[in-house]
């Protein structure tokens, strides 16, 4: 799963270099308190996603176990990603494990990487049809009804987060429609979040390496952690204001 890629290692290192230089939301005076509380209650039927909320993830790379793929398996199961093509490079990849190796001392860090749910998403900027879109609560999605499969967004995404579906599908999950000819990426498990649940990868991580929550809410577990620890946005020099933050990289 984790093809060591020197370019990605460089990206992450570049991001780590400027950690804490102003792009992480620091709410001063808050202490790290009991964590692990569930996401907010399910949004009532008939109400729209609220711009007052900004959903985000905090991934603690110091807890992420090398070789573990539980988050990837959970994502595949939850979202019905099951096709295996003759050329594995064409398989959809909503989340992948990245291995960073410090060449000087051989220290290995692994972390899961998925759509970073940018507040200023380049994939949305370039889409010619308006299919690539950001929901009011910060979740970036592809509206497959209008996606023409041009793949501009795949080229624009600095995190290689998007995949193109190359084959006819029949095993989709009812809550995650997906099909040939469209681009897709991590939806932050939008169908679960709307029900008040956590994303599948967060729930299934045996190390508790991921925290999901509202970045706008200063008392949410994720905000408290970000306020207390030094966290990083990968490639933060791009100033895309990411919804996914990392710790320990």
């Amino acid at each position: 799963m984790s093809a060591p890629n020197p370019r990605r290692a460089f990206f992450a290192a570049a991001g780590a270099g400027v950690a804490g230089l102003g792009f992480t939301a620091i709410a001063p005076g808050l202490h790290l308190m009991a964590v692990g509380e569930a996401n907010a209650a399910a949004r009532p039927a008939g109400t729209a996603a609220s711009p007052a909320i900004r959903w985000g993830l905090l991934i603690d790379a110091t807890k992420c176990a090398p070789g573990c793929t539980k988050c990837i398996d959970a994502c595949h199961e939850e979202n019905g990603v099951s096709e295996q093509l003759p050329d594995p490079r064409q398989n959809s990849q909503w989340i992948r494990k990245i291995e960073l190796v410090d060449r000087r001392n051989g220290r290995v860090t692994t972390l899961p990487m998925m759509c970073q749910h940018c507040a200023k998403p380049p994939c949305v900027d370039v889409c010619p049809t308006g299919a690539s879109m950001k929901r009011a609560d910060g979740i970036v999605l592809v509206d497959r009804h209008t996606c023409i499969g041009c793949r501009y967004c795949m080229m624009a995404c600095p995190y290689k987060a998007r995949s193109f579906v190359h084959t006819n599908l029949t095993e989709q999950s009812p809550e995650t429609p997906r099909g040939k000819g469209c681009v897709e990426s991590c939806t932050l498990c939008v169908h679960r979040v709307d029900k008040g649940q956590q994303p599948a990868c967060v729930e299934k991580c045996p190390e508790g390496a991921m925290t999901f929550g509202d970045l706008n809410d200063p008392v949410s577990a994720i905000s408290k952690r970000i306020a207390a620890a030094n966290t990083t946005q990968v490639l933060s020099d791009l100033k895309l204001d990411l919804g996914v933050r990392y710790q320990g990289i």
Binding site: P44, G46, T47, A48, A49, R135, D194
Partner: peptide, 10 residues
């Protein structure tokens, strides 16, 4: 309404 606005349960 569902995908873009996030309105569920209609």
């Amino acid at each position: 309404r569902t995908l873009r606005a996030g309105i569920r349960g209609e």
